[in-house]
Amino acid sequence: MSGAAAVFHGSADHAARFESKAATREPALVKWGILAVSLSFFAIFLLLPLITVFVEALRKGWDVYFAALIEPDAWAAIKLTLIAAAISVPLNLVFGVAAAWAITKFEFRGKHLLITLIDLPFSVSPVVSGLIYVLVFGAQGWFGPWLSEHDIKVVFAVPGIVLATVFVTFPFVARELIPLMEAQGRDEEEAAVVLGARGWQTFWYVTLPNVKWGLLYGVILCNARAMGEFGAVSVVSGHIRGQTNTMPLHVEILYNEYQFAAAFAVASLLALLALVTLVIKTWVEHQAGKASQQSEE
C-alpha cells in the first residue's frame, strides 16, 4: 500500500480553470488562509526534515562529510545497496511486465484476486516482510537444516537481503502497468498479430512504446524503495559491518554510536537519491502528459 497513492498521472495546471470563474473562487481571505495553513504544514512536516538531513551532514564541515563516505564500511554498504537494487529491480520489472500482460490482455477467472495478491506486499509491515524469510530460510525455519547442511547462508547474508528487497518492491512495476495497459486495450496488439507480427515483436513495437513512461515511472519508484528499505532488510541482515549492512542500516549503526555527522552524511546520499527520484518522476509525468495530449489531438 505504500506508494499506492503514487498512481501515475500526467501533469497539468488546473488552477486557471477554477480561478477565472467567480463561482469556483473563494474570497481572498479564505484562499490565503488555506494557502498559509497547508503550505506551513508542508514546510514543517516535509521540507524541514529534508533540509535537516543536509544541514546535519555538513555540521562538522566537508572533511568529516567526505571522511564518512569513503570509510570502508560505508563503501561496503553502498556496494551492497547497489547490488540489492541491481538484482531486485530487474526481477520485479520482468514480473511486472508478465503480470500486466496476463492480466490486461486476457480474460480469466480470479483476475481481481490476483491483482489484490500482487498488491499484498504493500500492506504488510516491513518488519513482517523480513520475518517471513527468517521463518522459511532461518536456522529454525523450513529449509534451515537443509541449507546449513549444504553450507548455504540465506538469512543474515546477502541472499536474504535481496529476497526481502524483492518482496517489499514486488508490486511497484505491475501496479503502474496494469491500469495503463488496461486503458490501452488490446486492439493495437491484435492488429499487429493479425498482420503477422510475432509475440515479442508485438510487445516490443506496439505495447512497449505505449507504456514506456508508466514503466519507467514504476522502475524509478521500485529502485528508490529497493535502495532505501530499512525494516525488512534490518530483520534479515544480521547487521554485520562491512558485510551485510546496506546504506540505511549503516546509517542506523552510525546513529546509534552517536556518530551523528557521519550518519547524516550517509543519509544525505540517500536523500539525494530521493530527490533525483522525484525529479525523474516529475519529468516522466511531464513527458507522459505531453504524449497523451498529442494523442488526443
Partner: peptide, 20 residues
Amino acid sequence: VDALVDLPFALPTAVAGIAL
C-alpha cells in the same frame, strides 16, 4: 511543492527517522 509531496515515498524511512 507538488513534486516534494511525494518525498515520504522516496526518502528512505531511516533517513526520515533520524532527521525528525
